[in-house]
């Protein structure tokens, strides 16, 4: 049985708990960003760009059987790190699970500043777009 969304969130929280200060956390985040698997260039279309981010962010989703898989990329490595965590938490779950997900890990790992409602910030837009994909897929069922 695959891990639940909350199990993955708890795992991330435990990983970040190992770091004492913000700089270590951010170094880890940057590392996650650098390791995010490359998104196929053909998916980096205007349509897949998430509006409202200071750096360009692309997000694509596809359904495989019962689950939704996400692919994403960004020009900014910290944003990539954040996306990488979102993908790890939400990918390979059903549309219903994704829609119901409460993403408490963001606050618990000390990254809630990225959810602030400033125009330059994309995390909120990314979460919204991921849920939108899930909503679209669940409507198709």
């Amino acid at each position: 049985m695959a891990q639940s969304i909350n199990e993955i969130q708890d795992e991330l929280i435990a990983e970040f708990d190992l770091f004492e200060d913000w700089a270590d956390k951010y170094e880890y985040l940057i590392d996650l960003g650098k390791k995010l698997p490359a998104m196929s260039e053909t998916l980096k279309t205007e349509e897949n760009v998430i509006k409202g981010c200071q750096s360009r962010v692309w997000l694509h989703a596809e359904r495989e059987g019962e689950v939704v898989n996400f692919h994403a990329d960004s020009e900014a490595v910290i944003v990539k790190g954040l996306i990488s965590m979102l993908i790890r938490v939400l990918s390979a779950h059903s549309a219903a699970e994704i829609l119901a997900a409460d993403l408490y890990f963001i606050d618990r790992i000390g990254m809630s500043q990225h959810l602030a409602q400033t125009r330059s910030n994309g995390l909120l837009a990314m979460v919204k777009q991921m849920k939108n994909y899930a909503l679209a897929f669940s409507a198709q069922q």
Binding site: W22, A23, Q54, A76, I78, V79
Partner: peptide
């Protein structure tokens, strides 16, 4: 990317624009 620098500098207490 400028945004990455802006985010980290803010963590150091430095307010710049990107």
């Amino acid at each position: 990317h400028p945004q990455d620098l802006g985010v980290l500098l803010d963590k150091f207490g430095v307010a710049i624009r990107t």
